[in-house]
Design a protein around this nucleic acid. Structure first.
Lengths: 198, 198, 198, 198
DNA sequence: TATGAATGAGGCTTCATTCAT
DNA sequence: AATGAATGAAGCCTCATTCAT
């Protein structure tokens, strides 16, 4: 019983509405009504396109992290030096105050869930894998260029790089100050460079 | 006086129960009943000691971060070299797989809330201030010792240090692998040392 | 003319689908979607052919009881002795495990409704009238043959005959055992014979 | 976690309210609100005493059939001849127009469910077992008295007796005529006597 | 102090029905 | 004729909160 020709576009519309709603309201207080309101559809439509509320949220995490992965990947591909790629990666991650605020508010909720619920963890893992691929590429290239320490291995270094990026963005998020965004990006870049350098 | 003490004790009991419940269940699905069950008291008691559910959770964040701050502070005080203090700080933060898992599961939920709700952000800020005090102490001492870069300022460096700690612990949490805890602690220490070193 | 025929056919198709759906699901949990699925048409078609869900079900009862009446009537007409007719009537009513199970599951739901809603009761009454006509025919012939008691009147006896048939089939249905179907038919026949005999 | 000191009385109150609601509304249209209204409690109370709606209804069937079994059993015990016991049994089953109407409306709904859902069937089976015990007692005594056929066995005869009782009461219910209640009781008694007699 | 029965608001979900295509 | 997307009413259920004891 394949009941799924249903417009992909509308699914996206609902996912985006869910993202907006989550940005404003938080996981525990977001309701299907809020999501429907943001999508400017009736409550029933959400159920028409998604099995249930959980399914919307799971798919939202997958969609969000997928988009970010793609953006980061493509930004990195455009650069051809280790530092260029690293800067592109960080620039892409620090997309801007508004975007980072929206995303990290929601992402923190998802991480909290991922720490308890396997399905969220698996989706997040795919995101981490993408991040690791980028880090590995940067590290390998930098090592070839002779600017990054030969002693570093991708599997131990990659998580640290993502840790610094996420950690810095969380620190920035808590300042609630858009003006500091650039500063934190700078600090993040510097820190990662120090971690990688010979 | 006696009553006050007894009352304080029971408040703690309820807060600890809330912590356990949150560890297991997550912010959105924790109920007062769950908390009461963990505290082995009736549901009414929770309302007797706390205005409402929100009050329990707000106080829990304050209590948790307060305890961690105190532990970290005292661990650092026992050391008298920059590296000693730094190691003590990180050891204290990486208290162990079980404790870190419990805490970070709950803390991620709180961070998600803090990103939206001022009262949580303020409490978290107090925690960050305590972390910054430690970092500043470590940095200053290291600079005196000549092992840390003189160019680093506490206000820009402290958040990065905490970013790396939290970032690494989140990365570890997502692996769901107790055995990797030591590895992540090690990576965290190494990364911070590189960030600080001359 | 052609359209009307085609239309009638599709109505039957939907009614039969409703019957199948009801057999499986029960009155309270059968949905128009289930009916549409069984009929292999879209949900809209059901509304195209029937005013609303209730109309489908009302018409289903009429259709089902009509078919059974016709079958019983014609089976009885083929026999020419009182016992022959009675046996034919009971054989027809005890059509077989699969058919009886399907029908009585649905019929019990309808009887429950008929006990509250006039339109169902009226349709059921037409069925009872048909049963009464058969019983009367059997009784009259048997009295002429001298094998049935002269003291019995059709209006008091007919309901008892149907009571025994329905009662026995309900008892059998509750056993959930196909093998007992024959036994219950036999018991039913014997009981009715005793009730009618001189 | 035995959370059940909860007043048995209130459970009964709710069950009785459910019975009233079902009598009026039918299985598919009865709501927890209706039940709560009949019980003159809030909707939440029903959930406080019962796991869910299904649990109310399952327990209702058990309670209703249990009460009827008890009444029939005790009525039969007071008599000491086969015909006396049989008459008492039937009198008890034909308790009166109002009671029979209420009960059989609800019971037909339950039988419809019992034909599909094991838990209902099992409860109904306990009721049938009780009926069979009575029939067996009547039959055995009547055979000793020499008024009932020695060829009848309890296991084949008991279902027929209950079939005639239920069948007749359903026939009566469909007449929607209180005045015919006595007539149907009489017919029922006569029919069973004929079935049992030598 | 402590209990837990009771309330009712509000969420998720189902589904009959409508309607544009 | 037929489809299936969309709507929204209504049901079940959860749970924070209140309150009598």
């Amino acid at each position: 019983m394949v009941r799924y020709k249903k417009s992909e576009e509308k699914r996206k519309q609902i996912l985006y509405a869910a993202f907006q709603a989550l940005t404003e309201s938080g996981y525990d207080s977001v309701t299907l009504q809020t999501i429907a309101d943001h999508a400017e559809v009736s409550k029933g439509v959400v159920h028409y396109y998604f099995e249930n509320k959980e399914a919307v949220l799971v798919e939202l995490l997958a969609w969000l992290t997928g988009k970010i992965s793609a953006k980061e990947q493509s930004a990195v591909q455009e650069q051809h030096t280790a530092t260029g790629k690293l800067a592109a990666y960080i620039d892409s991650a620090f997309a801007g105050p508004a975007q980072n605020r929206s995303f990290y508010r929601v992402y923190l909720d998802f991480l909290a869930r991922a720490s308890r619920i396997p399905v969220y963890r698996e989706i997040n893992q795919r995101f981490y894998d993408s991040c690791a691929a980028i880090s590995t590429e940067v590290l390998n290239l930098g090592q070839e260029e002779g600017i990054f320490s030969r002693e570093l291995t991708p599997d131990k270094t990659s998580p640290v790089i993502r840790a610094i990026i996420d950690g810095c963005l969380i620190q920035w998020l808590m300042t609630d100050d858009d003006d500091l965004h650039a500063t934190f990006k700078e600090s993040c870049y510097t820190a990662i460079m120090k971690v990688l350098s010979v």
